[in-house]
Design a protein around this nucleic acid. Sequence first.
DNA 1: CGTATCCGATACACCGGTGTATCGAACAGA
DNA 2: TCTGTTCGATACACCGGTGTATCGGATACG
Lengths: 202, 202
Amino acid sequence: MAAGKTAGRVTRRRLRTRANLLDAAFSVFAAKGFGHVSIEEICEAAGYTRGAFYSNFAGLDELFFALYAQRAELIAEQVSGALALDGPDLDVPAAVDRVTDVLLLDHDWLLVKTDFLVHAARDPEVARGLLEHRARLRRAIADRLARARGHTELPAVLGGVEGAAHAVVAAYDGVTTRLLLDRDVAGARAWLKQLLTALLTG
Amino acid sequence: MAAGKTAGRVTRRRLRTRANLLDAAFSVFAAKGFGHVSIEEICEAAGYTRGAFYSNFAGLDELFFALYAQRAELIAEQVSGALALDGPDLDVPAAVDRVTDVLLLDHDWLLVKTDFLVHAARDPEVARGLLEHRARLRRAIADRLARARGHTELPAVLGGVEGAAHAVVAAYDGVTTRLLLDRDVAGARAWLKQLLTALLTG
DNA sequence: CGTATCCGATACACCGGTGTATCGAACAGA
DNA sequence: TCTGTTCGATACACCGGTGTATCGGATACG
């Protein structure tokens, strides 16, 4: 049993090993890609044996899911933080700067994220979860835009704040693909900034 | 030896098996994803044994690459065709219609394509090839836009036809991601059309 | 400190896929 | 039809990873 949370002792060591396994898994997944990674590899990278692994996770899928959830939550918080910084009126270029800095920082994260996307695309259950997560992000953007309405004009073609938020996410997805291939972080960031400001200040 | 082309007899049967293997591989890859697929699975799906496989391909990677090249070439031709249909002046909505119909037709293809992207993102050699392919597509779009300049105005914010072509590709990538998750082909197509026409007719 | 509990290392049995070597059957060409 | 070549099926040896059961050392808590 791995998920057997019988509410026993809280145990400190366990948390460390779990965290270590997750960290190691991140590196290994980023380097080789989910599907080309064995449990043993992760354990070796983390400095444990399979015994530790099976004591913490039911299998590769569960670990991968946990890993994604952890990191995605982190990113979401950072984005929310970056969006919250302004006052009631929105300084679009500045906000775009901050958000793109958060979103396009780590190439490894893009790799893992895309791996997870591919995984989700084949499992409706996982897809649902991912869609919800994306909806939350989109809503955060839409809310921020709505809060700034009146101060800043939005191009009408996109169809309101909801449409604009959709477009922002799509732009992010698009630039992710490009960045995965050419690894030109600076270029991607500049381009995304330009596109987003163009989109939002029409 | 698999790639041993000693320019021997042309052999007809071989071509059939090779094609059958590729077709079967497409289905299997789409269903399970590269990295969760064994050579045996593909052979079984195609109705052959591993002997046939190793006689035609050196390994999974080579087959996957060949498969991608085959299908990507097909798509590229279709897109070029769709772009060529208009006369010298460009009917943007109609062209967008035709292109999106080609690009967002097959969900399985999106899956395989994204698998390949993830693969390329970890192998600079493969990435180079994929970037070239995308550059060719982008250039086709840019040329088409340039050919229509004067008849149709482009928004200046994107930075000329090159910038506009970049934006079109990014929009396609973005909508691909979304479509992978929600599988709403009609919605995705409509949304892409709207976005593209908005982008290109500013 | 003592001890009950938890955690993770070790050992074991097992399986599925890999790649190669061989050989009979299918095929193209005369 | 006959023949030399090619293709792909079969058989074999092998390996790496999996999952489980067990046990000794670590850890929290009184």
